[in-house]
Design a protein around this nucleic acid. Structure first.
Lengths: 333, 333
DNA sequence: TTGAAAGCGTTACCAT
DNA sequence: ATGGTAACGCTTTCAA
C-alpha cells in the first residue's frame, strides 16, 4: 500500500505539503501541486479512510437503520438516499433492525462504534430515542418524542383524498384495514380515513345507514387476509387497505373466496408497487412520494451534519399522489 | 469522548493492559480484567473503529455493490447477507452501480478507499475485473473471467425443469423472453430453456410443427410488453418469461390486449415476488433460492477474508424450486 | 509557501 | 502478568 509519505518522497516535498496538495486545502504552489499530483497518480495513491477518520474525527459514513432491507417501501427511498449521499461524499452503512426494539437499541451502539457522522432512521420503537449529539433524521415514520427532524409522507391528507374518491364513487359502507396503531404511519393513515369518512356523514360501526368500520391487524398479507375473513359475512361496499401488504392480503382472500373486484367489492390501497398498475383491475391507491422522501431526508441530514445548530426538528410531510384506477367501482350508494 | 487511556487511568493500569482486558486477547489477571471492564462500563467507553481499523489494517466493513438497491431480486439476498455478516462482526457498506460500467469502476475505488475487508459484488460489466488482492465474491451473476468465487442460482437446471413442465402440459409452440445475452443470468436461463425445448424435439423458428422462438429484449416490464407485441399476430401456446419484470410486461400486454391467461395463452415466469402467488391465476415459475444465495455468499466471503489462500474460485450453483401454479394450462399439443 | 512535528485512539511488541 | 512505547497514515498547527 502506498502512503502519503511515499508520495511526498517521490515528489520531493514534505508530507504536509503533499497533504495540502491532495486535499486542496491551504496554500501550495501550483508547480509543487502538479508534482505531488503526478507522483500520486504514478504510485496509484489512495487516501486511507481510517487514518483520515481518526485524525479528522469524522468518518464520512452515514448509517441507515431500517426495519427490513427486503421491503420495497423502504428501498424506494433508500436508493435515492444512497445516491444523494454518495454525491455529497458520504457512504451508506446499512443495518436492519428487524422490527425489534432491542435490535434497534443495539444498532445505535454499532452506529456509535463506527463513528458515523449521521443516521437516517426508520424508527421501530415508537418510544425509542437516539443517542444525543448524533445528527439523525427520521424517515417514513416518526417517534412520539421526535427531537430530530422527520421526513414522512403526508398520509393524513393522502388517505383522506383517497377515501373521498371512494365515497364520491357512491360508497356509503366502508372498511379500513390498518396496522398497529402505535406506529405513526398507521395512526396518520387512519386519521385521514376517519376524517374523510366522518366528513361525508359516515358513522363508525353504525348498525344501519352510512357507516364505516376499522379493522386493526398485522401489517402483512396474512394480516390483511385474516381481517377480511372477520367481515366475510357482512361485507362493505368498499375496503380501503392502508398498506400494500394489506392490499395483497385482501386480494388473496378475495381470490380464494371467489369475490370479484370491483364487481362484488371495491378496493383501494396505499403505496404503488409495480404490480398495482398491472393488476386486473389496476389498484386505485394513494402513493406516497418515496423518492422525494429519500431526497429530502438526505438534504436534511446533510444540513444537520454540516451545521448541527441549524437542525430543524420538525416533521416534514411530503404530499403523495392519489392514483385513480379500476379497483373502485361506482356504486348506487 | 472517552478513550482507552481514560479507562486505563481510572482502572489504574496501563493502556496495554486495558486493551488486552477489553479485547480479550493476551494475558491479563482476572481481577485486573474486572477492574478494567468496570471502569469501561462506568465511563461508557466505546472502542474507536477508525483507530482500530488504522492499527489493525482491517475495517470489519464489507462492501455490497449492486446494480440497483430498489430491486427485490437483490434485496432478498442482501437482507440475509447483512444479517449473517452482522452476526460475524462485519458491517455492510452499500453502493449502487446503476447498471453502469463506469460507476462500477468508480465503486471499486470507493471500496478501496474505505479499506473494506471484502466485497460482495453483483457484476454489471461482464468483462469487469475486481482489484487484485481484495476478497470478493460475486453474487447472482458471474463475469466471464471470474477469478473469484461466485454464488449464483442454478438457472440452467431450474429453467429447464420449468420449461419441461410447460411441455409436459402439452405445449409444442413456445416463446422465451430473455434479457441481454451478455449477462450470465440471461445466457444460462436461455441455455436451460433451449436444452429442455430441444430435448422435447422442438425446433427453433420452425415454420411448422413443434417449435420454439427466442425473443431478446430489455430486462424490464416495458421490454417484456414490447417483445409480446412483436409476436402479437403469431402467438405461441405458451410464453416463458425469464425474469419477474418480463413476466410483468407480458401480463400488462395481455391485459391491454384482452388476452386471457391461461385460456388464450399460457405463461411461466422466473422469480417469486409475493404477487406471483396472489395473481389470478397464480404464476407458475422457477424461483431461485435468493435467501440461500445470500447465506452462501456471506459464508464464502467470510472464508475468503479469514484465509485468503483458501479462496475457492469456482462458481457455486444453488438449486431453486419450480412452483407449479395456475398460469400454465394443459394443451392438446 | 513550505517542512517538521504533534497528535488522533488503538494494538502489539518488548522489557520488566 | 503488566506498563511503556512505537507504530498505523493522515491533517494541522507552528516556525521558518
Amino acid at each position: 500500500m502506498t502512503t502519503l509519505a511515499d508520495v511526498a518522497r517521490l515528489a520531493g516535498v514534505g508530507t504536509g505539503t503533499a497533504s495540502r496538495a491532495i486535499s486542496g486545502k491551504g496554500y501550495v504552489d501550483p508547480d509543487t501541486k502538479r508534482r505531488v499530483l503526478d507522483a500520486a497518480a504514478e504510485l496509484g495513491y489512495r487516501r486511507n479512510a481510517a487514518a483520515r477518520a481518526l485524525r479528522e474525527r469524522r468518518s464520512r459514513v452515514v448509517g441507515l437503520m431500517l426495519p427490513d432491507i427486503h421491503n420495497e417501501f423502504y428501498t424506494a427511498s433508500a436508493a435515492v438516499l444512497q445516491a444523494d449521499l454518495h454525491a455529497a461524499g458520504y457512504q451508506l452503512l446499512v443495518l436492519a433492525t428487524g422490527n425489534d426494539a432491542d435490535a434497534e437499541k443495539a444498532a445505535w451502539e454499532t452506529m456509535l462504534d463506527r463513528q458515523v457522522d449521521g443516521v437516517v432512521h426508520v424508527p421501530v420503537d415508537p418510544d425509542g430515542t437516539p443517542p444525543p449529539g448524533l445528527p439523525v433524521v427520521q424517515l417514513n415514520r416518526h417517534t412520539r418524542t421526535a427531537t430530530t427532524p422527520a421526513v414522512v409522507s403526508d398520509d393524513i391528507a393522502g388517505v383522506a383524498e383517497l377515501t373521498r374518491t371512494v365515497i364520491d364513487a357512491g360508497h356509503r359502507d366502508l372498511v379500513a384495514l390498518v396496522g398497529a396503531p402505535e406506529l405513526s404511519t398507521s395512526a396518520e393513515r387512519l386519521t385521514g380515513f376517519r376524517r374523510a369518512a366522518t366528513a361525508a356523514g359516515l358513522v363508525e360501526d353504525a348498525a344501519a345507514g352510512p357507516r364505516y368500520r376499522v379493522l386493526v391487524t398485522e401489517f402483512s398479507a396474512d394480516g390483511g387476509a385474516a381481517a377480511m375473513e372477520r367481515i366475510a359475512d357482512d361485507l362493505p361496499g368498499a375496503v380501503v387497505a392502508l398498506s400494500a401488504r394489506l392490499v395483497m392480503g385482501a386480494l388473496r382472500w378475495a381470490g380464494e373466496r371467489g369475490i370479484a373486484i370491483p364487481d362484488d367489492l371495491s378496493l383501494a390501497g396505499l403505496g404503488d408497487p409495480e404490480w398495482f398498475a398491472v393488476w386486473q383491475p389496476p389498484i386505485t391507491s394513494f402513493a406516497p412520494a418515496l423518492a422525494g422522501m429519500g431526497h429530502r431526508a438526505a438534504q436534511e441530514l446533510i444540513a444537520a451534519m454540516t451545521d448541527p445548530a441549524s437542525a430543524s426538528s420538525g416533521v416534514v410531510r411530503l404530499p403523495g399522489r392519489v392514483l385513480v384506477r379500476g379497483s373502485v367501482r361506482a356504486a348506487a350508494g
